[in-house]
Nucleic acid binder design. Structure first.
Lengths: 200, 200
DNA sequence: GCGTCTCTTTACCAGTTGGTAGACACCCGA
DNA sequence: TCGGGTGTCTACCAACTGGTAAAGAGACGC
């Protein structure tokens, strides 16, 4: 552990998150993760009893990390619903750019085993429930367009994360990841979501 | 070839599309594809010189299939831009429901090798270019909200396919895949995209 | 000095992977 | 009747997979 101050376990989690998120869980071997950390495969298996355990831990960390960022941004945001939406977009956007693997991994969830998916659903459930309740009350107050609040939440989610993760798609329409490109993308995303929710 | 009228090569492509789309390219072995077709792995390798070749062929077919459906729907749609959008949503939605692997595979593109991604970008380019041009001219005519047409196209894309593919996300908000659930989902998706594009 | 606890290692293993080599069966035109 | 395709097969292979067993290495209190 001497060469670095970060403990091995954490370094394994970090490396695994990047590799899993970028290339998919099944495409990454324990050997590869170990190599990235600078350690032998058996050290990985010392900290995580199996690859499955590692996947679960990585997913839990990724979700927790994202939830913390988002919840903090929402707590700091003004009460106006559209402004809160802007805050949400910005909060998801920052990690998406700085660490694309994080959202990539969230996107992986769909093809994981039932038990992993259920575990994650449990982690997400409180936040999702709160978001849906907030959307519903804003609808009742006439501040956003009336719609099915649960499906609306899913739509916002898929728009924001889908765009943030699929940089390839953006490349296909001539977008580049320069700082100005990022600003442009974020402002378009804001305008899009705002318009989609504005009361009729 | 006797037992079935569909030639082996096509049956391999079909099976591979389903498996790749549902579980990811790296997670599916040639043996598994062969088993699904009812043939030995070496027969797969007879028709496609390598797994990479097979991946390329499957992706090409998936993209072509989707483009045909979408282009046909758009040709049949009325000139009104929002109505055309409805047609687009419906066109993407149908295969997404009937054959979820198809869109799943498209979502896989992001993690493929550069050469595959470039190949697909080439296939998609004409349609994307046309879509962007159409959006721009509708903006000029004041029939949809003014925005960066290329990024707007990417946003629409990520909203529609993201939602259609991530059934797991929908499960997390209490949605179920019943016929009535599907109708509800499609109409919410329509309303969302319509609102996001409506002129201010 | 001695055991013990934590961490990382080397040495294996059985199963699976993508891929090669070559044989076998069948059909069809000469 | 024969020869050459065409398509599928059996038999292999080296490399890699996740995982087990057990042996150090170093720090710590005694």
């Amino acid at each position: 552990m001497a060469p670095s101050e970060i403990p091995t376990r954490q370094r394994i989690l970090d490396a695994a998150l990047d590799l899993f998120g970028n290339r998919g869980v099944d495409a990454v071997s324990l050997d590869e993760i170990a190599r990235a950390v600078g350690v032998r495969k058996q050290t990985v298996l010392y900290w995580f009893a199996s690859k499955d355990d590692l996947v679960e831990a990585v997913l839990g960390e990724a979700v927790a990390e994202l939830l913390i960022v988002v919840e903090a941004a929402l707590r700091a945001a003004p009460p106006d619903p559209l402004a809160r939406l802007d805050a949400l977009v910005a909060a998801v956007f920052r990690p998406a750019v700085r660490r694309p693997a994080l959202l990539g991994l969230i996107g992986e969830i769909g093809r994981l085993s039932e038990s992993h998916a259920a575990h994650l659903a449990g982690l997400l459930e409180p936040s999702v429930g709160r978001a849906i309740a907030a959307l519903r009350s804003e609808m009742d107050a006439g501040r956003i367009r009336r719609a099915d609040p649960a499906l609306l939440a899913a739509l916002i989610y898929s728009t924001v994360t889908g765009l943030a993760t699929e940089a390839r798609v953006l490349g296909a329409v001539g977008w580049t990841a320069s700082p100005s490109g990022l600003r442009r993308l974020r402002s378009e995303l804001r305008a899009f979501v705002r318009a989609a929710l504005a009361p009729t």
